[in-house]
Design a protein around this nucleic acid. Structure first.
Lengths: 193, 193
DNA sequence: ATTTTCCCTTGATAAATATCAATGGTATTT
DNA sequence: AAATACCATTGATATTTATCAAGGGAAAAT
């Protein structure tokens, strides 16, 4: 249990076995069936979730009922509504399972305890969030500076696992497109080979 | 000197006077005239810059020579090419001054020393990057889920200082639009009042 | 085995946005 | 004070993307 999570911890920071034991005490495992909610918009987000297995997405729904995907999370990734988690405000995102999932939840209390008592945990969190920030900035850069075709190619080369496991209409949503437009972009790309 | 920076430090974390003295030793002041470069694409980014005074932008330039603005930074904000700073790879962004600037530079060595020796500094950095991540995620959300009009309104209400101090064509670039389109969006909004 | 649901594609058309060109205003430089 | 550079706006047109509608195939449910 928690194998993927512990591996992720050790990859970045040199935790001792005692550190890991302490961390373990603060974790809660959770399984989720495909299509189940992890978080619903309007609820307060009380955890950060680490994905041991499976795939999830976070998204908003607009007035028309259209889903706009903010983030995917596969094995080894963290997912949460960070703003809600940090402030206690109602979540603006919904999170649900694209596949059956095994998660490791870090509650607000657990997070605060670990930050207070285990400096290495804070280092790990800092590295995680820094990596997430850099990745998000790259995504934004590609949105405002590349053509659709280039964006899609870049996406498939950076996240081939997502392309394989997630339906295309979700990738379209993640890119801010309609499924029809993404289908046409893909056609153009493949017809050119 | 460094007043704004120290205020930003104290706002988030309870630094002692000794802490601040230690930090001060690691800082380098820098002034920049309007239009001067702080960082050029291709160079390695060797610092994180805190803005004491003035305004800067980071951006990429595409094959056509068009500038795509990734970030603005006003007083109290940090700006850098974080990926280049962390990895030592050549920067993908250029940073230059929109107004005359007074900056506080934190070099790579300074950053590493402070992280190693001053846990509170790590906490401050973690809080900064977390805030930046949340803000970036909001920007992304508005790009993929709002109409142009709503996005511009949201931008002006979140960043009124930027609207006042930065030419509109730069805001258009930041939004991924042509100046003409932004001008028309603005016209629509104002004509409706 | 059949039905149902989900997903992707395609076509026709509408709407949004970019491009190109021109103008006038304002600030800055000379 | 004149000249220059910078900036925002507007119009005409082209391009891109969304919308609406339909169909077919594969997977999942019954």
């Amino acid at each position: 249990m928690y194998e993927v999570f512990f591996q992720a911890l050790k990859n970045k920071v040199d935790f001792s076995d005692e550190d890991l034991t302490v961390i373990k005490k603060h974790l809660t495992p959770k399984k989720l069936r495909k299509k189940q909610y992890l978080l619903q918009e309007g609820d307060v987000c009380k955890f950060v979730a680490f994905v041991e297995k499976g795939a999830l997405k976070s998204y908003t729904i607009d007035e028309k009922g259209t889903e706009h995907i903010i983030q995917f999370a596969l094995e080894g990734w963290l997912i949460s509504d960070l703003y809600s988690f940090l402030t206690g405000e109602p979540a603006t995102y919904t999170i649900d399972a694209i596949e059956d999932c095994e998660l490791v939840l870090i509650s607000k209390n657990a997070n605060e305890d670990l930050l207070r008592t285990l400096p290495k945990y804070e280092t790990w969190i800092r590295l995680q969030i820094t990596g997430a920030y850099v990745a998000l900035q790259k995504r934004l850069t590609s949105i405002i500076s590349l053509s659709l075709e280039e964006r899609y190619k870049s996406f498939t080369s950076v996240y081939p696992q997502i392309v394989q496991r997630v339906p295309q209409h979700m990738i379209a949503s993640y890119m801010g497109l309609t499924p029809e437009t993404l289908s046409r972009v893909r056609k153009k790309i493949t017809s050119r080979r």
